[in-house]
Design a protein around this nucleic acid. Structure first.
Lengths: 154, 154
DNA sequence: ATAATCACTACTAAAATAATCATATTTATC
DNA sequence: GATAAATATGATTATTTTAGTAGTGATTAT
């Protein structure tokens, strides 16, 4: 039941780009900039960003002052989409999506399959309802709360 | 977001023992018997059953006519318990339970952590509400349905 | 020109996974 | 008491996944 670093970093990178989004189309972020903000290894993040580009999540510009930017508006990118793209289908076990599954002679009669489907649906309901715009709103609320707590010395 | 074979086989083994439960305390199942029913590799299952014994889920008897049986009533064993015991904490990422997490400088301000908590809670709600008695009921309903479908040639 | 930056491919070390193997110990039954 | 059937335990292994690193090439603003 784990998300890998690959998926984690992908989400963080897109989140950084989302925070940075819209100021102007010229406004790209370099890999190293994103890596620094999210505390991620640069060369590993590079691979992830290139994958995200192929997936249509981000766009890139090469050369000096090049970098990455979101290919779509943050409200058009769902968290679940990114997870699925980076990690494969959201399902606790392969038999949920694929009918063929080694460990199961009787897929139709398998009660566990039903449970995994429930789990899958419930997880998908959460991550597919969340866009990166939602995340930004949450983030801003959080940092507002934090700063006001600081202000009043709570 | 995956369950491993270890966890999968553990659930299946306990389910077989649960189906077999209560007929008498003498009524144990051998590893090979369980393995056959669940289509699992015998020696791998052996390790899993021994782990489950240490975890207090099953009891064993050695020697001829030995084997395994549940240590508790099926209604006293939750699916979530077994998953946690075999796979570790149910959480998409380590930062949910543990405060220390390499990939995150700012755990408090991290919006993803909140999402993973939501996911975790929602998954736990499902698997912690399910006992092996529930599974048996589901299973019997299913096989009843199947046999009646056969009967009426649907 | 050149320096900064993305693009791509290949490689690698470590960990996890899914087992197998060998050997000991226990116990019902003949 | 011998034997066979079973669990108990620890070691070993093969494969895959993960999390990177390294190097080289292509592009472009200055």
């Amino acid at each position: 039941m784990k998300i890998t670093y690959k998926g984690d970093y992908a989400l963080k990178a897109i989140f950084q780009l989302a925070l940075h989004y819209g100021k102007s189309d010229e406004c790209v972020m370099s890999i190293s900039e994103i890596a620094k903000l999210g505390d991620m290894p640069v060369k590993f993040l590079e691979q992830i960003l290139l994958a995200l580009r192929r997936g249509g999540f981000v766009k890139s510009r090469r050369g000096v002052k090049g970098g990455f930017l979101l290919a779509r508006h943050p409200k058009e990118i769902k968290v679940g989409e990114v997870i699925r793209f980076m990690e494969g289908p959201i399902e606790p076990i392969a038999c949920v999506e694929k009918e063929s599954y080694k460990g199961c002679k009787d897929v139709a009669g398998c009660i566990f399959r039903d449970i995994w489907k429930e789990v899958k649906n419930s997880v998908c309901a959460i991550v597919d309802a969340l866009t990166f715009e939602d995340l930004i709103i949450r983030y801003k609320e959080k940092s507002l709360k934090k700063s006001s707590m600081l202000e009043y010395n709570i």
